[in-house]
């Protein structure tokens, strides 16, 4: 597929709206990328859900509106290189078996999902191919090769609505994720909900609190100039409240990821997004 400048985006600022999040709208190649929508039924305390993009400054927002300017795209290019790179004892690359990465369109919107009674994330799927089909070593969960690949695969779903299954086999995992979301942890004794549900739209020191949505991951952060995984972000938030984070790729974070994905139901994939 063509990964070069296929996107021209304009940030149109609507004035006068009295929302805590700003009222800019994001459009890709003349096509609007939805950054707010009605909250899914299961969310009891929130009426409208917003993309984290809506809470960033104008300058940060602008970086995501044009793929030439989007600093995450360098890493997507690295993902393209990795896609074609032979690795492991079987002498294969991803492209040996998967004809076109564009075939993964829609995959991001449905993850994590249940397989063989366990929850699997995109990182798990990639590593399963590496270890079981290529005879290659697993990539570290949040390190550069992995985030480059999840950015490339996630990008194929850009503009498509988040739509994870939360019933049936997924229900127990979803319930566990919900419980974690509302549990206070750390010396500062806060839950994810204290900041991202009760106080989104307000400033916490220099940061404008968003709803903590995950539709833009992996995200490029200006703070560390690289792509950041979903679990890496969870870890950062836990450490900020002086809590011992759960393991990246572990059961707790996978359950939390499923629950958060479901809180973004209807928002569209923005991978790779840009944040401060």
């Amino acid at each position: 597929m063509n990964l070069k400048p296929w996107i021209a985006i304009a940030a149109i600022s609507l004035s006068g709206a009295a929302f805590a999040q700003d009222s800019s709208s994001l459009s890709v190649e003349g096509e609007a990328l939805l950054t707010e929508t009605a909250a899914p039924e299961h969310m009891e305390n929130v009426d409208t859900i917003y993309s984290g993009w809506r809470f960033r400054s104008g300058e940060t927002q602008a970086l995501q509106t044009d793929d030439f300017d989007n600093p995450a795209m360098i890493f997507v290019d690295k993902g393209i290189d990795l896609w074609a790179k032979v690795d492991g004892t079987e002498g294969k690359s991803c492209s040996s078996c998967h004809e076109d990465v564009a075939d993964f369109a829609g995959l991001r919107t449905t993850l994590p999902r249940v397989e063989d009674a366990g929850l699997v994330t995109m990182e798990n799927l990639v590593n399963e191919c590496r270890t079981e089909r290529m005879g290659a070593e697993a990539w570290k969960y949040s390190k550069g090769n992995m985030t480059a690949m999840t950015a490339l695969i996630g990008l194929q779903s850009r503009g498509m609505a988040m739509n994870v299954a939360i019933d049936g086999d997924a229900a127990p995992f979803w319930e566990k994720g919900k419980e974690l979301y509302y549990t206070r942890v750390g010396q500062l004794d806060m839950s994810c909900s204290n900041c991202h549900e009760d106080n989104y739209g307000t400033m916490i020191r220099a940061d404008h609190l968003s709803q903590g949505q995950i539709n833009g991951f992996p995200t490029y952060r200006l703070k560390n100039a690289k792509l950041n995984s979903i679990h890496g972000r969870f870890k950062g938030c836990m450490k900020n409240i002086r809590a011992t984070p759960f393991a990246e790729g572990g059961e707790e974070f996978k359950a939390l990821e499923l629950y958060l994905a479901s809180r973004g139901e209807g928002l569209v994939v923005e991978t790779p997004s840009v944040r401060n």
Binding site: G186, M190, D198, R242
Partner: peptide
């Protein structure tokens, strides 16, 4: 409240080792 308790040293869940 979201406001932390500033003079309380027990009863926390998973505090970082440095602060336990």
């Amino acid at each position: 409240t979201i406001m932390p308790a500033f003079y309380k040293d027990t009863g926390y869940t998973r505090p970082l080792d440095d602060f336990a």
